[in-house]
Amino acid sequence: MSDFSIFEYGLGILQALLIIVLSPLIVGIMRKIKAKSQKRIGAGICQPYYDIIKLLRKDEIVSDQSSWIFRVTPWINFVTTASAAFFIPVFLIYSPFGVVGDVLLVVGLFALGKFFMMLAGLDVASSFGGLGSIREMMMSVLVEPALFMTIFVIALFYDGTNISTIVSSANDTSILIVPGILFALIAFFIIMMAETGKLPFDNPSTHLELTMIHESVVLEYSGKNLALMEWSHAIKQMILFALFVDIFFPWNFVEQISLVGISIGILVFITKVSVLASFTAFIETLVAKWRLFRVSDLIAMAISSSMIGVIFFFL
């Protein structure tokens, strides 16, 4: 397992690059679908790319209250999230970097990014940043147990926390979903919505202080930094989507490495992720934002769902 050729490492890097490059596209698709389902026309699906490029070229303003933490955060955030992308299989059934780290490392990298993001929110001495940080903090505290329980369930059913192992054994099991995994799916979906700031938890499309979580943390950012923040958020979302489809819908991975196989694999992957993205977008148009303190109810649901998953495994 541990010996890969340079070529395979190249493929692995290609997988990671795919995630990083495609992530704004998914954001664009989701926005478009949301717009359509709300009877708006909406911007084109490539708009996020234009946004990022435009922001990268802009001058920026930094708060005079802030310290180096504030300036270093977008970089750390981007680097951790983008590095996490290296461990996710896209069209291959494995990632050659699977030896380096497992799903817990991915979680850890996300947490590192989030840690700095929360600090940056506190750094600017505005009440909005504090508000965002504290809510982000609360959310991550609550999501953590649910996340680990879900990982536990998945690790139990698919022999390990190594993502490549998980995906390949998921691919080997029958099409009929195992009941325990069904519960893990529910839990993972809820966690995904929470982690990516989707609607019952957070409403990223508003700048009203009552509703925002993620947005109020990045409120003070502009220019390059903002571009990096937004991009890394998109990558994180993409990674979670990719993990979701890898684990729960592990079909059509490339068996033989050939140009045709790989392109089919990529296409299938994009389709799967887009379908998931549209589904999430639909869910988002269907639900309203929940009161902050009711959010924990949903997360409790995720926890118990994965707990039942555990129970199912042991039977």
Binding site: V79, V99, G160, T161, N162
Partner: peptide, 18 residues
């Protein structure tokens, strides 16, 4: 079969190169 593995130097390499 590989249950889990972790190679921190590798992680560092990835982080730096990214």
């Amino acid at each position: 079969s590989n249950f889990a593995s972790l190679m921190m130097p590798g992680v560092l390499v990835i982080l730096t190169s990214v």
